[in-house]
């Protein structure tokens, strides 16, 4: 108060206005409104922004170990074991010899970033399971990654959905190392973290074993329609 009294004689205009408070509150209000309405705004801006900034809105690469595991196409192996009649190891050529499926979908992370129209090609996970012969008593799958740290889980029901694939092509080219190549999982109905990269092994088990991100607080079932609460019962699967 004393400050303004002293400052006053210096200012010919005399009057001061609390602009600072308005700027601060305005910025805060705009930011909070952006949380609620930003998704709509972004969908309008999206195409334009992508042309302006090539990196917008790109993939954010989630690598949880120190570096990417480098696996050549020739040395790639996918092991399937556990509660199956015919445990076996697939080479990339084995996978490519199986009937393939391809489609485009929006890739969406649980934290909100999306990449529209991502092309996928690979083998349906259900075909691989049929090939190995799932035994009585199996209820879930546990996936392992070449990076030695990441893991994922799906119920048997979820694994048999048509857009759950073992992918060897993505974005119109072989899956790059960065994106989890040469072979990764793609779980279409769920958020990105379920789509395990550098897929090395599938174990058929009798209960859901939470994967890496689930152990770090992500929901066990990453359904994209929003039913992502940790209370989702993995074993009741199909209701989503």
């Amino acid at each position: 108060m004393t400050t303004t009294a002293k400052g006053a004689p210096d200012q010919k205009a005399g009057v001061t206005i609390a602009v600072g408070r308005r700027v601060f509150l305005g910025m805060t209000a705009l930011g909070l409104a952006g949380i609620v309405f930003g998704a709509r705004l972004e969908s309008v801006l999206d195409s334009g922004l992508q042309r302006l900034f090539p990196w917008w809105p790109g993939f954010r690469i989630y690598s949880i170990s120190g570096s990417y595991p480098m696996i050549s196409e020739a040395e790639y192996r996918l092991e399937i074991s556990g509660l199956v009649d015919r445990p076996r190891v697939f080479t990339l050529a084995d996978l490519k010899a199986m009937p393939s499926t391809s489609f485009s979908q929006e890739f969406q992370c649980v934290t909100g970033w999306t990449v529209p129209n991502v092309e996928w090609e690979g083998v349906k996970l259900s075909d691989i399971l049929d090939e190995a012969g799932v035994r009585q008593g199996a209820t879930a799958l546990s996936f392992e990654s070449y990076d030695g740290a990441d893991s994922e889980s799906l119920t048997l029901y979820q694994a048999q959905l048509p857009d759950v694939i073992v992918a060897y092509r993505m974005l119109g080219a072989p899956v790059t190392t960065e994106h989890g190549g040469p072979v990764r999982l793609y779980v279409g109905p769920m958020f990105g973290y379920k789509s395990l990269k550098w897929l090395s092994a599938i174990r058929v088990v009798d209960q859901v074993i939470p994967g890496y991100w689930e152990q770090n607080g992500y929901p066990l079932n990453g359904w994209r329609d929003g039913s992502t609460g940790p209370t989702d019962l993995a074993l009741t699967g199909g209701v989503a």
């Binding site: 930011g31 952006g34 949380i35 609620v36 309405f37 930003g38 998704a39 709509r40 705004l41 972004e42 649980v110 934290t111 909100g112 970033w113 999306t114 994209r224 929003g226 992502t228």
Partner: peptide, 12 residues
Amino acid sequence: FPVSWRMGATFV
């Protein structure tokens, strides 16, 4: 938070 809020928050 609902998914649309997460997208909005990411955007902001």
